[in-house]
Computed example of a mutant assay.
Amino acid sequence: MNHAKGKREAAAAAGIVCLLLLSACNTNAGQEERIVIEKPEKTITVVEKKPPAVSTTIEVEKIDTYEGVRGMDWLSEDQLIIAKPNEQAQPLSVEGEERQPNNLYIRDLTTGADEILSEKQMDQSSAVLSPDKKHLFYKQHVEETATGYIMNLATRETVQTGKQFIGMYESEWADNERVVFITESADIARSDIDGNTEILVTTQDFSTFNAKQRDGMLYYISEQNVLFQYDLKTKERTALDKQVIWFAPSNDGKQFALVKHLNKLEVEEMQMELTIVDQAMQPKGRIAGGNQVFGTSWSPDGTKLAYTIVSGGNVQGVYVADVVSGKATQLSVDMELASDPLRWSPSGDKLLMSTSVFRGNKPLFITYVITLKS
């Protein structure tokens, strides 16, 4: 938005209010507004202090790097859920080679200590915490298949989320009690913290991904990148948009981040665009563009949006944009690949991201914790 124009419009609106009140207005250094109301018996002066302008400057305070671990989610401001090789477990045999299984741990960032959550002779991945941080959903792998589990972090008791195998895509909590995921057979399922699982939608489309629930609405992408809205009460399905690569509702569900294809892939190099839209899918502003835009994540208060841009086959950078102004800041992170969604800490002052590199012909995960200046 043009700031000069915005100020002129605000001033004009203020003038109209003054005329309607038969009053005179005076603004003092942008900090207070005087409204003088003339009455036959007396004069009343009301002074309203304006809140100071909020800075939209985003700056990096520090970046901490952790090699050999894959950061997945925030348990608190100083604790992460991570996956790393469990050196105490019996090794796995994978394609004729032995390696340690990747198990889930709690990493204390202040001490560097790791506490194992569940020791298994199988890989664990895709861990995501409930909003209240009391339950953890994760996948456990046996060769090429995966099964879902929910762990009560207070008791470490674990329940299986139905008998269905879980697909490869990320899962997301609908609320503190239920998690939404996509099965290997492309159904969208939901499980509660006791393991009771129901099928919400049978899509019959193995390209289905990005399933998210906000209140009574389920959103997902399917059928040649069409974004659908499914009313869980009426069972009505509505196509909202096409050429959609990623869809990220804000925490309150009142605005959406939308990543779309802009061109025909068979004739041109891939181009994507990240925009903000309202609940009616009307555009509110363009945030970014590039060959690929991914990892999109809202800050807890919904004022900032983090994302990654790839151009020319290389990661161009991790960015944080102020949603109101649209101003974006590039964060200085030296990386080759970005593998996982970006995740905000509970305060919104830190970002978690994981990347992978090849060292000695073997993949190595690297986790970054980016602390922003408050």
Rank of each mutant, 00 (worst) to 15 (best):
Ser347Arg: 02
Pro341His: 07
Thr367Trp: 00
Val357Asn: 09
Ser130Met: 10
Val47Leu: 13
Gln229Asn: 14
Ala29Gln: 10
Arg34Gln: 06
Ala12Lys: 12
Ala89Glu: 15
Asp114Ala: 08
Met335Glu: 06
Gln88Val: 14
Val293Ala: 01
Thr155Ala: 15
Gln140His: 10
Val323Gln: 01
Val244Arg: 02
Ile221Val: 13
Glu97Met: 11
Asn176Cys: 14
Ala211Val: 07
Leu331Phe: 11
Gln282Met: 11
Thr308Arg: 00
Glu172Ser: 09
Arg99Lys: 07
Gly348Ala: 07
Val46Gln: 04
Val226Cys: 03
Thr43Ile: 15
Glu269Phe: 03
Glu269Asp: 12
Glu177Asp: 13
Gln121Ser: 14
Lys254Phe: 06
Leu20Ser: 12
Val17Lys: 10
Val226Leu: 02
Arg214Asn: 06
Met281Thr: 08
Gly295Gln: 06
Leu240Ile: 06
Phe181Asn: 02
Asn28Gln: 13
Lys49Phe: 09
Ile37Thr: 07
Val46Thr: 03
Leu129Asp: 05
Glu266Asn: 08
Lys212Thr: 13
Gln160Trp: 08
Cys25Phe: 05
Gly312Trp: 06
Lys304Asn: 08
Arg8Ser: 09
Arg359Leu: 12
Phe256Ser: 06
Ala280Gly: 11
Lys139Asn: 05
Ser374Asn: 14
Tyr230Asp: 03
Gln204Pro: 01
Trp173Lys: 00
Asp278Phe: 04
Gly6Lys: 09
His261Ser: 14
Lys254Asp: 13
Glu269Gln: 08
Thr110Met: 07
Val180Pro: 00
Asp340His: 10
Leu305Gly: 04
Pro52Lys: 05
Glu223Pro: 02
Ala89His: 03
